[in-house]
């Protein structure tokens, strides 16, 4: 257990130069991932995906189909792993849990008045407890961006800490919604607050706001995780979500994780992709490597 710490006692976050971050990120993108390395990387990407549906029009039928896909990614070819988890609204947790019974695929639920977070602490706690009671293995909460931007960091910190408490055994992912924080300095500061307040994972975005998981943002959050690990020896997970739809971008994310945090983070215990269309692109790439033939999306199921 982490010792609760008040925000006032946090070390300060370093400032961020955005142009420098862009240059660094460009360097990751020049890494050339070929052959064995690519095949291994693509499997890794698949195993790290949180298949996601977070829509007002979600129905049990939709969720069940997605859950089936989660452990039958491409039955035409036997050698692909399952995704890490599915991510749904609290009302769908029970359905997903049932559908995934007997598999290693976890169920994650968004909570805390996702996606805006504009509600009271009581409702957010109730929302979280409901999802956990329904069987959620993981909780994806949103931070109060309005409060953060108004400088009420203590409020943000305390809120995360109280949700962490409500999670019980479920792992907590804290969504910063970086597209609303606007600057990398803010992203860094919010990462810092989330980590010290008890996040098991930090996550970029809800998927509802653009820009979402840009490499610059993910880089900034990985550096926060690295600094925390250097200071405490405790690992924190990372989940870029939204906007990662190609294998190439996913692999470049893995390059960042490897070079910043090391190979220890290269598994779905510590790194996830929040994405819906990424899986099929990765599958097409894998089949291209296996068969030597460029693929068509008509041959990969959309759930």
């Amino acid at each position: 257990m982490k010792v609760p710490i008040s925000f006032n006692k946090l070390p300060t976050s370093p400032s961020i130069d955005k142009v420098g971050v862009e240059e660094r990120v460009a360097r990751f993108q020049t890494r050339s991932i070929k052959n064995e390395s690519k095949r291994q990387g693509l499997d890794l990407v698949l195993s790290m995906i949180d298949l996601t549906t977070l829509e007002g029009k979600d129905t049990p039928g939709k969720v069940k189909q997605m859950c089936y896909k989660a452990h039958h990614l491409h039955d035409a070819y036997a050698g692909v792993p399952n995704v890490a988890a599915v991510c749904v609204y609290p009302s769908m947790v029970r359905i997903a849990k049932t559908a995934l019974n007997g598999t290693d695929v976890k169920v994650a639920s968004v909570s805390t008045a996702f996606p805006s977070g504009q509600s009271t602490r009581e409702i957010k706690i109730t929302d979280t407890k409901f999802a956990v009671d329904e069987g959620a293995d993981e909780i994806d909460m949103v931070i109060s961006r309005g409060k953060f931007l108004a400088g009420e960091y203590n409020f943000v910190f305390d809120e995360i800490a109280s949700i962490k408490e409500a999670c019980g055994k479920a792992r907590l992912k804290v969504i910063l919604e970086t597209g609303e924080l606007c600057t990398l300095d803010n992203v860094r500061k919010a990462s810092h607050i989330a980590i010290y307040a008890g996040a098991d994972f930090i996550k970029t975005s809800t998927g509802k706001i653009q820009p979402a998981a840009t490499m610059q943002v993910t880089y900034t959050m990985l550096m926060a995780i690295k600094d925390y690990y250097d200071a405490t020896g405790i690992m924190i997970g990372m989940k870029p979500a939204g906007g990662i739809s190609t294998s190439k971008l996913a692999l470049h994310n893995l390059v960042m994780v490897k070079e910043i945090l090391g190979n220890n983070w290269l598994n779905n215990e510590w790194f996830r992709f929040g994405a819906s269309s990424l899986a099929n692109d990765v599958l097409m790439q894998i089949m291209k490597l296996e068969t030597g033939v460029y693929q068509s999306s008509d041959y990969f199921s959309i759930d």
């Binding site: 991932i33 070929k34 055994k169 405790i234």
Partner: peptide, 19 residues
Amino acid sequence: MAKKKPGKEGVNWDYSPSL
């Protein structure tokens, strides 16, 4: 929940030569 110590499940992923 206690955090995992590193080194247990990481994948040894490296770049193949790309000449």
